[in-house]
């Protein structure tokens, strides 16, 4: 499997009135082609900033990329000109968003919004583009009739809107699909349908998927690999099985313990005390130490390095293999 997307030491900050917000503090990430790699974290941990940085859509200023590389098929995206990035967007990298209702333009028909993407990237006329749009709507399960094509977003249900958005994102056969919480705004019954659709399309077009979510349950359904992000830094990265069976970072462990489990009915659901720190006030040392049950003096002063503990299972904690959380509590 070739390296499709590789992020190296990406550091992004935002100049704000309250001070400098350090959104990403050296993110490292590797996504191979044809793989679904989930980026998991709480709100404000830097998931969306990462995806916007890949798309080249960070607002600069106030945003600033301080250092790092984003290699897509070997090219450093941060070195490209605006027009080179624009050609990549939509064609090589597609993106779907959390709330399709907001991310679809209310004033244009679905067919038009798909067709314009095709017309931008290929030398097709409107008629051919509309025909292709129809085929993609069929592919995402919206039927092969012209009704959806001629509908405005408000005329469709939430699930249909998300399907239409997916059709829009994959209509140019991108090598990479970024899915930013694509199921969060949907009903639970629809979530699974959309996840299966994304999985099916990934197989069909051999896309790599960067799947952004805060929900480990959803991530468990779809991903091959998982990276856990906390306060702008990846704290653990592993295959799905490694991560679920043997979490190494206390944050990951606590996240897993906070998933409701039918087998543990009647016991109190575990929550992680405290909240993600503001990007303006990131604690010194390991940024998780104020919430960590294992924290000792070293955690206050020293940022733990990310170390490969088991054939590609990375974690950044001082106490891997030395101390562990008692999950029975």
């Amino acid at each position: 499997m070739s390296r499709l997307l590789e992020i190296k030491n990406l550091d992004v900050s935002f100049e704000q009135e309250q001070g400098l917000a350090r959104a990403l503090r050296g993110v490292d990430f590797l996504l191979s082609s044809g793989e679904t790699h989930a980026l998991v974290g709480e709100s404000g941990s830097g998931k969306t900033v990462t995806s916007m940085a890949i798309m080249g859509l960070l607002p600069i200023p106030p945003g600033k990329i301080n250092q790092g590389e984003i290699l897509f098929q070997g090219k450093n995206l941060l070195m490209l000109t605006e027009s080179e990035k624009r050609i990549l967007r939509g064609k090589e990298i597609g993106m779907i968003f959390q709330e399709p209702a907001k991310y679809l333009n209310p004033a244009y028909k679905i067919g038009e919004q798909i067709a314009e993407t095709l017309m931008t990237h290929f030398q097709t006329d409107r008629k051919a583009a509309t025909q292709q749009a129809l085929e993609f709507l069929h592919l995402v399960g919206l039927g092969k009739n012209k009704r959806v094509l001629g509908s405005y977003p408000h005329e469709l249900s939430g699930g249909m809107k998300q399907r239409a958005m997916i059709a829009m994102a994959i209509c140019c056969h991108p090598a990479l699909l970024i899915a930013d919480e694509p199921t969060t705004a949907l009903d639970v019954t629809l979530q699974l349908q959309i996840l299966r659709l994304i999985h099916r399309l990934k197989r069909k077009f051999t896309m790599g998927i960067l799947f952004i979510s805060h929900d480990l349950g959803v991530v468990n359904e779809i991903s091959d690999k998982i990276s856990v992000i906390y306060a702008g830094k990846i704290v653990e990265s592993a295959t799905k099985n490694q991560l679920f069976e043997n979490p190494l970072h206390p944050y990951t462990k606590l996240l897993l313990l906070s998933i409701p489990d039918a087998a543990k009915r009647g016991t109190r659901l575990r929550v992680i005390p405290g909240t993600v720190p503001d990007a303006e006030h990131i604690p010194a040392g390991c940024s998780f130490h104020p919430r960590c049950p294992l924290a000792e003096d070293i955690c206050h002063g020293e940022i733990p390095a990310s170390i490969d503990y088991d054939s590609g299972h990375f974690a950044a904690c001082h106490f891997v293999g030395k101390k562990w959380i008692d999950s029975s509590k």
Partner: peptide, 20 residues
């Protein structure tokens, strides 16, 4: 948000501004 989505499709700034 739809402006972000339009940009993510690779539309030119002109299309994003003057069409969408």
């Amino acid at each position: 948000e739809y402006v972000v989505a339009a940009r993510s499709k690779g539309l030119t700034e002109r299309m994003v501004n003057y069409k969408h």
